[in-house]
Nucleic acid binder design. Sequence first.
DNA 1: CAAGTACCGTACCGTACGGTACATCAAAAG
DNA 2: CTTTTGATGTACCGTACGGTACGGTACTTG
Lengths: 227, 227
Amino acid sequence: MADTLSPSATSTSSDVADALTERQQQVLDATLELLIENAANVTMIAVARKASCSKETLYKWFGDRDGLLAATVRYQASKVKVAPFDGADLTHARLTTVLEGFAGDLLTILTGKMSIALNRLAIAQAHQHSGNNSANSSENLGSIVLQNGRFSTGPRLKPALEAGMAAGLLRNDDSEEAFRSFYGLVVRDIQIRLLLGDVISFSKTDITAEAQRATEQFFSLYGPQTP
Amino acid sequence: MADTLSPSATSTSSDVADALTERQQQVLDATLELLIENAANVTMIAVARKASCSKETLYKWFGDRDGLLAATVRYQASKVKVAPFDGADLTHARLTTVLEGFAGDLLTILTGKMSIALNRLAIAQAHQHSGNNSANSSENLGSIVLQNGRFSTGPRLKPALEAGMAAGLLRNDDSEEAFRSFYGLVVRDIQIRLLLGDVISFSKTDITAEAQRATEQFFSLYGPQTP
DNA sequence: CAAGTACCGTACCGTACGGTACATCAAAAG
DNA sequence: CTTTTGATGTACCGTACGGTACGGTACTTG
């Protein structure tokens, strides 16, 4: 009975892809494609047709529509890889590079079609009270996106920030609070505007410029110099 | 034939309420109530029942479901009033008060159930290409929310920022850019987390504290002292 | 080869919703 | 009192979707 997806409480974006057949991943890729072109088009028949599989297989593998969507979101989240941070020998220049890289990656992801589509989907259905009838029903999409998105980026940057504090490059402060301000400086109103359908053209150079500005502002706020 | 709503390209949150009958406003209030408790419950029958009117009346007044939703969003947006800004005699203390007040208002609105529900709705349907068949069809919900939300807050604070620059309280810079950074410092990750279903308890004191922090950070970034 | 398994394609069912038609009723207008 | 207007409530239609059932097919296993 290894062909049904185990709920796997909060799989930390690792083995989630391993638990999927090649064929199943094809199905999820098809779902993602449909999701990007128009979230309203993601019906079971459309997915089945696009993936050249039968609806019955979809239900067998993913339980119901929500299960398919949850698996899709988790699958996509598992694709995002990050380079680990090496905290030794930290200089201002290196920390700057780390922060700018992080900001650039964040902006690149958030402005991508994929992130917008997934966030739209999760936001749209972020309501259903957890009153789940069957035991197989999966978690809220909003939680999944939060867990693999915002709530995984924070801890990811945390070691860099704390190393910066330890090295005297950043003022000693709550690293979580510092991160949230950095996040605000990076993202500003970009994400909400995109989610609401505003069209913003963002070139690679724009993104690096934004990342540099945010990093510079962040140092200005959390740098060691006296306030 | 004054009982059908004129499309009214981008009514600037003024006469929109005046063009509505008392009864029609009751209908829109009912729609808002349903929307807050669960966006999925906003069906034509549910609205009709809650407002004690007939479906036919809804269609007569608002054209179709999208028209009803658009009217609802516009109606709610028209309720948000702002105190005008008096730029004479600007001191640092007064500008601080203005900024903190603005930030507090913004946070209060964005964290409110109403804003979350409306943004969820607009984001969920922010896809449909403007391919509108009938001439009566109304504008995209996302555009309406953006227009009455983010895109009206910017110009609203603009005079204060530029007056601050003129008075030497703020570094000379693009006021729009400055506003966007201020926005980021105020909102940070709050709105996206709320939209995704994260539950954040925000007391009145929390909000004023956040507003003060953001304002202080903003002054630190855009104050006149040398970078 | 026979039995089983996994999957595809399609047809089908129930339901729910958007939208329309109609019958009824209340109140204003004449 | 009669007519007209406008609104309520309900019944109805078409459609679309989620979910299920079933026949057919290819591939594996003993």
